[in-house]
Design a binder for these strands. Sequence first.
DNA 1: TATGAATGAGTCTTCATTCAT
DNA 2: AATGAATGAAGACTCATTCAT
Lengths: 211, 211, 211, 211
Amino acid sequence: MARPLPLDRHDRQQAAREFRRANLLIAAQQVFADAGLEGATIRAIAQAAGYTPGAVYSYYPTKEAIYADILSHSLTALGAAVRDAAAAAHSDEARLRAAVRAFYDYYYDRPQELDLGFYLFQGIRPRGLTPALDRVLNNRLVAVLQIIAAAMARYAGVAHLDAHRETVAAMCHICGVLLMANTGRLRTLDSEPAALVDHYLDCLVARLRPR
Amino acid sequence: MARPLPLDRHDRQQAAREFRRANLLIAAQQVFADAGLEGATIRAIAQAAGYTPGAVYSYYPTKEAIYADILSHSLTALGAAVRDAAAAAHSDEARLRAAVRAFYDYYYDRPQELDLGFYLFQGIRPRGLTPALDRVLNNRLVAVLQIIAAAMARYAGVAHLDAHRETVAAMCHICGVLLMANTGRLRTLDSEPAALVDHYLDCLVARLRPR
Amino acid sequence: MARPLPLDRHDRQQAAREFRRANLLIAAQQVFADAGLEGATIRAIAQAAGYTPGAVYSYYPTKEAIYADILSHSLTALGAAVRDAAAAAHSDEARLRAAVRAFYDYYYDRPQELDLGFYLFQGIRPRGLTPALDRVLNNRLVAVLQIIAAAMARYAGVAHLDAHRETVAAMCHICGVLLMANTGRLRTLDSEPAALVDHYLDCLVARLRPR
Amino acid sequence: MARPLPLDRHDRQQAAREFRRANLLIAAQQVFADAGLEGATIRAIAQAAGYTPGAVYSYYPTKEAIYADILSHSLTALGAAVRDAAAAAHSDEARLRAAVRAFYDYYYDRPQELDLGFYLFQGIRPRGLTPALDRVLNNRLVAVLQIIAAAMARYAGVAHLDAHRETVAAMCHICGVLLMANTGRLRTLDSEPAALVDHYLDCLVARLRPR
DNA sequence: TATGAATGAGTCTTCATTCAT
DNA sequence: AATGAATGAAGACTCATTCAT
């Protein structure tokens, strides 16, 4: 039976600190979801967390670092959503469809998190998004894509497929649809984002169908 | 032989003014391409054009108006690029491929213009982007898409096709690829944007191929 | 029979200039009445007169000088209004009442002109309102007050009265009422400006009534 | 014997903050008295208080809010002045005279505060002067007028008098005199503002004298 | 660790006035 | 006399960040 190891003082402090940081992060996510990239000022985040602006800097060196941490959690949650959807499916085809749809659904419900990704991943940031952090975030994304790639391989048979390319292509397609939806283009073009996604999936499934 | 008509004073002044506005716009485009959306402040634009900030306001009533003008020119240029590419093609299939590729190529070379479009097309701007202007810009985009839709219809035969949906889907795909490329994701995922586009086109062409 | 004297070239030019200045002034008055003190920019005035901003400076050295000229004309018109009202009255009491009421009515209909007077007459202006001009404007005002003073003297009999003081007092009262009306105070205090004026006149007439 | 209660940290900080805000307000009042409405910019106020412009915004959300606070204090002080003057009087007549004179004296010594009132009470301000605040300020003014109205009623007997109307009329008169004095008109008209006020009071007292 | 006051560099925008033409 | 382009100084306001406590 696992018993929690006794912590020495240092570890206890560390844990408490981590706990406070997590709280701050949750507040930041909330501000973010409510007010978007522009509205998420340090002041607003601090206030939402019950802190004053200065206190935030005990936990994050920079505003961008907060962004990065939110994004990191966001990618983890995305991964969970995609994984769960895939796990619940009852056929290989359903699994592929479910995984891709989960990716789409996740961001459709959280447009700000998509924005954040695009913002942070963009070129060179003055400070905050270090190469190390960038690598971490990237790995998170790769992990999500691997779930989709696996579903694809299982459906199509690994031999007949460049699963990596197809997965990246699917991600691009989904993100493009989301982008167009979020900026209002699809509305003015009289198109339903979900229908576009399903159409893409229909074609994909047909194309990869094992014979 | 066309000889330039003599201009009266008013016309000459008008032309001179237009010339200066065009210069200002070019400077703004440059600032834009160099510094991106955030960096393209009135100060920076004015300086690049050799003006003081106040002077800019004799040419554009608002910062957003400058953005809108850049975007408008951008969409016009995009339209020309797509049209030219389609016109130069020697077969129906080549025309479809060329049109879509031209769309991609245009933005691949001018990533900031893509950003600008997404920025300006987004919801309601405080001032500057009037609904009228929004409609104009939107029509420009629609015009571009119609070229692609026409190529598609000609290739596939209009009966067997929801050309509108396929065109919107293609645009989403291209924009998704561009977005991923611009934010550095494709590099880290070891994917070539152009290869993705070509793959998409291969699938599209195969799928729509008339029998 | 008076025949217009032949004008030499210089005079003709002078007259033409004066004519254009008068046009400019009329435009300025209009802008003023429409847009108030804050809205009456040089640009707006120039545009209303069909000029460009620079041209205005051929006629007035300064924005304040335009204000001053408007005010001067305003005071002249006020004088005419008061004079006409007094002239039309059929009794000494009616004359006094009519003159004071005319003062009130004039400004009640033209609140911006009252503002202008207060603005220009206020303390030291940076430039524009020279002492000489100030004297001119003041004399205009004095001329108006003399009409009222004369009506008062005629009504009350000159012996029993400090007509100057009573006239200044009446002017203060009227201006106070107008000020309170224009700033919305009377509305919130549930008082009618015209009723206040009439009450003041009733008291004044009763007090000065010759026995 | 009252001993200051020990304050907890929060209260101490709150008090310190209030103290600084009060200092800022005093500086603002000074700037105001020296430079007038137009000269009282955020820059100038900040500088006078030893701050940078941005710091001002931790104390007041808006320039108009500073104005409003000054005006609020001003009206309170006016009320106190009028009340004290009335309280010190030894007869009903003296009380009425004293109250009205106190109103006059207060503003005669602080001409900018009169301006401020007229500015802020004017119609709708873009931001800052909310309807709620407007009501508060208005009530302050009404409270002052009630002191005068009470003195009037006590002197004349409430039956024989429209105390409200007479009070509003007196306020208008005083404000008219002050306006004319502040804009230099009374000087050029060779009239003493105080003498005008006293004359008005003489007439008022005579008219309302109980028989 | 947390405070929160303060900074400083920045944002867009306005407008009377000047001056070469 | 008129143009109108341009200036320059100013306006209110925002916000990430620092730092003494």
